[in-house]
Design a protein around this nucleic acid. Structure first.
Lengths: 349, 349
DNA sequence: TCGGGCGCGGAGAGCGCTCTCCGTCCCATG
DNA sequence: CATGGGACGGAGAGCGCTCTCCGCGCCCGA
């Protein structure tokens, strides 16, 4: 408890612990790591020495030799340099999406002693930064969430031979692992539900056509509706933001006043659509049934939104799992995991 | 361009670059860092060598000797182990708050080549992890966002002599730097506005009483109203979530049917309050004026919410600035930065 | 009683980088 | 022409850790 051998300068090192325990550095190292071939009583005295010295292994020194950092980059990547409008950062971080992904990633990584390093890649410069960061050995791999299908970062990573896993299938096929949702199946769930409810004149508000997930949700919905004998489904395009859902709903009702069911491609837009319906004096779900997608804004909707749930946290955790597999085994096959969505029935449909 | 001196194994090192450039390691190091006393033509050839070898400095090796990591921990810290209800993570990451803080932090750190490492501290175990992480030299300091005033982490950090900066003033005073909003002044802004609008019977929906910021907003509001000749302000307690704002509003109207103005302690609850008012058939702002706080949910409200803006991104960036100051100069004085809020007038009041 | 094997622990060589000397060379000055 | 000083570049010593040898001693079987 008292000062045995006060560490000369700064933090205690392996050497200090070894001296206190009366063994060699190597033995202490063994105890700390794989505990291979060390007599129980020696392990005990080493542990005591660690406790009295307050020793913590130095990560830099360790990763210098192991070539592992115990960190992965969590990259939020966008087109950047190109699209106008508000800043990239504010768009990405504006809703809870990022927080949920972070939460899922952390839940998987934390028990394994790995930490995610937050990075933004919204320009050629910052994309190079990400690649350099990994090549420097600052992180063992990257988890990439692209906000745009044409994001060039994944290819840069693949070309550099860096372990990486993507959120969502890339627009053009490249050999990289990713985790995605079965968007078409989810949209079909919505279609089935609307039809089963008895809706006869169904429309949809889709996401931006240049986002693959939005395309899939739209075509999946149209196909499923066609299967139910509704070959034509009126559709308007939104941008995944509440205001566009509101505007889209107004347009839809104006052009097709007899609509009795709507599939909205994400909850944020559905929230806006609900507001519009209310303004228009349509009751939900009696006059118009509404089904959303994502299950991200349920609490904020009136009435509570029936929606297709995308298990973001689970998907993010799965990304982390895949990445660690790639890091541990460079020969690990490129894999894509497609997660099945579920329908959460509340009151709006 | 062709293979000059193929790096024997793995990535090229300083040695490789030095060999290609025909100089010593030390010279290359000088060129890469402070460029001190190196002839221009030699610098040039070193740069060429770096380009041809594709060299990137190894971070572990560098930080082993510099004792700097170029990383800071971004810790989301809560009481944990104690409160029930849904999981800690889901609560923290549920809204855009975390994303906005992250965005502010990154905007300041990125140009300086520093990266934030995401950490969660919601139990004694994980709090120790954070301390160890820093003591290991995995990060140079910590940015701590506590969701609870009694969070023990700040004290642990101070006791360990680790550089750290807090979001918001800690419940009990400890010598640590923090950035906070002038909550009382913000609440006064709301009071002034409501009174100036002609509201005579004003009430408030506050945040949880055990959160210091909520207390400040409440007492600041009450004081300002008293100054305007309204010594008594009906108040109900919420939990900062939309549902509680809705419930609170119902209660308020039931107990005080003649209310014509409400100050809601955050936008999320204000959103719920607006919904309730709508259900109750009260027009906003004609019958009841509503002022929120934070400016975090403006777009999602109908009508658009008049609110007290808390510049989260700026505050987060300020935290990062303070932290780097502490890291660079261990003698840097403990500092608290109090940011002034502004009133954003929209349609709800 | 002795030899072989194996369980254990120590010595030592780096990992890639920075940084402190220190030597060299060149130029300006007396 | 000798000398001092400044500018520049190299040598080498670690930073703290892991890991591969090795050697020692104990236990077992013959």
């Amino acid at each position: 408890m008292s000062s045995d051998l006060p560490p000369l300068s700064g933090a205690p090192t392996l050497e200090d612990v070894a001296r206190v325990a009366g063994v060699s550095r190597a033995t202490v190292s063994r105890v700390i790591n794989g505990i291979r071939n060390v007599a129980p009583e020696i392990q005990e005295s080493v542990h005591r020495a660690i406790a009295t010295t307050g020793y913590v292994p130095n990560r830099a020194a360790r990763s210098l030799v192991t070539r592992r950092t115990g960190a992965v980059a969590l990259v939020v990547s966008g087109a950047g340099d190109a699209r106008g409008g508000e800043s990239f950062e504010s768009r990405v971080f504006a809703d809870a999406f990022f927080g949920r992904v972070a939460s899922g990633v952390v839940s998987y990584l934390r028990p394994r002693g790995i930490h995610p390093v937050l990075m933004l890649a919204d320009s050629a410069q910052t994309r190079d930064d990400v690649v350099s960061f990994l090549r420097q050995g600052s992180a063992d791999g990257a988890l990439v969430v692209s906000t745009h299908g044409e994001d060039p970062l994944p290819k840069l990573l693949v070309d550099a031979g860096l372990p990486a896993v993507l959120w969502a299938r890339p627009a053009r096929p490249i050999p990289i692992s990713y985790v995605d949702l079965a968007h078409r199946a989810g949209a079909a769930l919505a279609a089935d539900h609307l039809v089963a409810r008895g809706c006869r004149r169904v429309a949809t508000i889709s996401g931006p056509f240049d986002v693959p997930a939005a395309q899939d949700r739209l075509s999946g919905f149209q196909e499923a509706m066609a299967g139910h004998g509704h070959p034509y489904v009126p559709a308007v395009e939104g941008d995944f933001m509440p205001a566009s859902g509101e505007a889209g709903m107004h347009r839809l009702i104006k052009e097709h006043p007899d609509i009795d069911g709507v599939f909205v491609a994400n909850d944020l837009m559905a929230q806006g659509a609900l507001l519009a319906l209310r303004d228009l004096g349509r009751r939900v779900p009696e006059d118009v049934a509404v089904v959303g997608f994502d299950d991200s804004a349920a609490a904020a909707c009136r009435p509570p939104l029936t929606t297709v749930r995308q298990p973001m946290e689970d998907m993010a955790a799965e990304m982390a799992r895949l990445l660690l597999a790639h890091v541990a085994d460079p020969g690990f096959r490129v894999t894509s995991v497609i997660v099945q969505p579920t329908l959460v029935v509340r009151e709006s449909a």
